[in-house]
């Protein structure tokens, strides 16, 4: 019986992928006129196809490469994995078409950066303290 349980849980771990969903929040400055946004509009901003979200000019920021919240954000909102994203920006950078978002090292620095810069947008994990900023989108992978 123990062996059956062990086998069951082993298979679950091996083949289920992630056992829990990575949740993230997209945040803007508390004084921003934006109340909520859809994934497609956020995607266009983060891919450099526009510099505006719902008519408001915004500067986006990323969490560092390899961060699980960053991966969840890009897979859910932008529909690109890390490799596809690198190839996408390589094309844009070397065609003069734009530069990727600046990087904030943690949830905490992301929140501080958004608070300090009125026309900014970022994303953080759902466990981050976002009481001082405005959440405009909630997502999970």
């Amino acid at each position: 019986m123990k062996l059956a349980h062990l086998t069951f849980w082993s298979f679950l771990v091996l083949f289920s992928g992630k056992l829990w969903a990575e949740e993230f929040l997209v945040i803007v400055h508390p004084d921003s006129s934006i109340k909520e946004a859809d994934a497609d509009s956020i995607k266009r901003l983060y891919l450099g196809k526009t510099s505006q979200l719902l008519g408001v000019r915004l500067t986006p920021a990323d969490l560092p490469e390899g961060n699980s919240v960053r991966d969840a954000f890009y897979e859910k909102v932008v529909d690109k994995d890390a490799s596809q994203l690198k190839a996408y920006w390589a094309q844009l950078i070397f065609t003069g078409g734009g530069s990727p978002p600046t990087v904030q090292n943690s949830d905490q620095t992301m929140v501080q950066w958004v608070l300090a810069k009125q026309n900014s947008i970022g994303y953080v994990s759902s466990s981050a303290n976002t009481s001082n900023v405005k959440v405009i989108y909630r997502g999970s992978q």
């Binding site: 190839a87 390589a90 094309q91 070397f94 065609t95 003069g96 078409g97």
Partner: peptide, 22 residues
């Protein structure tokens, strides 16, 4: 707008002609 020495946009992959990874 771009003014100066620019890539001639002749082909599908002209813009990244030298960036082999693309």
């Amino acid at each position: 707008f771009q003014i100066g020495k620019i890539r001639a946009p002749m082909f599908l992959v002209s813009e990244t002609l030298d960036v082999g990874i693309t």
